[in-house]
Design a protein around this nucleic acid. Structure first.
Length: 162
DNA sequence: GCCAACGTTGGC
DNA sequence: GCCAACGTTGGC
């Protein structure tokens, strides 16, 4: 059992989108970074929990967290051909170097668990308990990062409103 | 919109 | 295998 933090721009997929999605489940198909892919494909287990982090957005420095469960199924190859995205005339995630027999990118399904209050990034930074959090590391851009047990416990307690 | 940090690409 | 150029991310 491992904890995670998964970033998404709320314009693309927000926690509320996830909550109203069919089966409250969404395929996390946008990862195009090898390190994040490896985390998702190799280390993430079905049933792991993750914080849902809203990056970018209109409110500067505001992050939103919720608990979700990555992965109802195992890792699945993604984005092998343009046909994998029939609804999009031009798929921004299309990678010509990924093929069905040699997929380069993978996805996992993520299911909604619960929504919490907002926990702004600035607030995260203010807690010395989270000083070593991967998310807060200088220059970090990974869209999927591991969260330690201690960090998970601390943030969860913060989110409960204590 | 700016820009720092980082990842990827491709020429050599 | 090096590394410069370029593209992307994401906070501000």
């Amino acid at each position: 059992m491992q904890y995670w933090l998964m970033k998404s721009e709320p314009d693309e997929v927000s926690i509320d989108d996830l909550a109203v999605a069919p089966k409250q489940t969404v395929p996390w198909f946008g990862v195009r970074n090898y390190q994040a892919r490896n985390f998702m494909r190799d280390t993430m287990q079905i049933g792991d929990l993750a914080f849902f982090y809203h990056s970018g957005g209109a409110a500067p420095g505001i992050a939103e967290f919720a608990r979700s469960v990555p992965s109802l199924t195992g890792p699945n190859p993604v984005c092998c051909t343009q046909r994998d995205f029939p609804s999009a005339a031009v798929n921004p995630y299309f990678d010509p170097k990924s093929s069905p027999d040699k997929p380069r990118w993978w996805l996992r399904e993520v299911r909604f668990v619960s929504k919490s209050r907002y926990l702004p990034l600035a607030e995260l930074r203010a807690h010395p308990e989270l000083a070593n959090m991967r998310l807060l590391a200088r220059g970090n851009r990974l869209s999927i990062t591991p969260v330690s047990n201690a960090e998970w416990a601390f943030i969860t307690q913060e989110l409960m409103g204590q």
